[in-house]
Write a protein that binds this DNA or RNA. Structure first.
Lengths: 201, 201
DNA sequence: CTGATTGTAGCGAATAAATAGCGAACTTGG
DNA sequence: CCAAGTTCGCTATTTATTCGCTACAATCAG
């Protein structure tokens, strides 16, 4: 995970700019700040730094770069060895598989946040009160995905997403609860669920 | 948090106005304050900011905009900002709580590994096939904890742990499956479950 | 030592997508 | 009713992404 001189300059520029202005620079601003004349170069730098895990940004979104704090501080408590599979009644398959897992495997390079779940609206989906859902910030969703949506601007829920003509059906995963039907215009998708995290006391 | 220059100007105007007057501005006041001539533009800005979780507002109500405090997004790659709670039918409570979550919060400084779950033996516990269980390596367990155990040296399972006199009962969380009873000597505890991680395709 | 390979650094142009804006018509809460 | 908020269709601008290309340095196999 070596960092080059040039890459450090890029990082420094990014954090200074963001610090000063409260929003991150556009590629053009980065280019002029670093004396570059092509946006492609900026793009390449940013992509490389992102792959090294030093930056985070959302795809195709303006000024969405975030400089991450150096991760060396607390050592790898975040990547777990994956020992194999377990199944009731069979021995652990000690497979050589992905061999480790971390939140990064779920997050990828998306912009993700967490929400703590209250209530049982997704119980049949095996998401229960107290779980944390990991949500990618996006405003589109595909058929059947679990999403976080605002209905009529103030009503936030966790539901499965289905299109029905001009309307949208938001389907709770709990037989006891009724789906919400609403015109597409009044449903604002906040993000879609990439995964969940549960912690036992 | 992916905020653009213009969006920051809008936010700044809103907080200043509200600060000064004790109530939030009407769309027309916002428009003139920002040099805009169409209320539609104001509306779009407010809606976008709301979707980014920086504002709160009631539908079709005058001067109902609330600027939310900036959620300090100290997100490491595996540390996710915790935005609040979500429940069916209620707005997101924008809580100031632990403010972020990561695998480290589950792991602490214990020795932990992950196993991929196969089968439905813990379905009633909302642990399903494909989930990863995060397991602390230990050889003791307390009453009722979910553990990974070897029975008779080769049979690894995920079960709840109960002592019954000189015997041990390993209880699956699935009504269709029977518990295992075994003498304490033939049950080797491999670890106990601290949490689970699920990734949606 | 030499040549092949790889990774970093850079350019300009074309494209694609999100953001920002307009006016007019429509809806809603008080 | 009426003023404030909302939605619609439509531009324009800003910003990000992708492509093909050059150049330089470090590394590695033969």
């Amino acid at each position: 995970m070596a960092i080059t001189r040039r890459q450090k300059e890029v990082i420094d520029f990014l954090s200074n700019f963001t610090q000063k202005n409260g929003y991150s620079p556009s590629y053009e601003e980065i280019a002029s700040g670093l004396g570059l004349s092509s946006l492609a170069t900026v793009h390449k730098h940013v992509t490389n730094l992102q792959n090294k895990g030093l930056l985070q940004r959302a795809h195709n979104r303006s000024r969405s770069i975030d400089v991450l704090p150096p991760r060396s501080s607390k050592k790898g408590f975040d990547r777990l060895p994956l020992m194999g599979r377990i199944a009731a009644g069979q021995p652990i398959e000690a497979v050589e598989m992905a061999e480790s897992i971390s939140l990064g495997d779920i997050i990828g390079n998306r912009e993700v946040f967490a929400l703590e779940v209250r209530g049982d609206s997704m119980r049949d989906e095996h998401i229960v009160s107290g779980d944390y859902v990991l949500v990618e910030r996006t405003n589109t969703a595909r058929e059947g995905e679990i999403i976080v949506a605002l209905v009529d601007g103030y009503d936030a829920t966790l539901k499965r997403f289905y299109r029905e003509g001009a309307n949208i059906r938001l389907q709770p995963s709990n037989k006891d609860m009724a789906p919400i039907y609403a015109p597409a215009a009044s449903v604002a998708i906040q993000g879609k669920v990439l995964g969940i995290l549960r912690k036992y006391a």
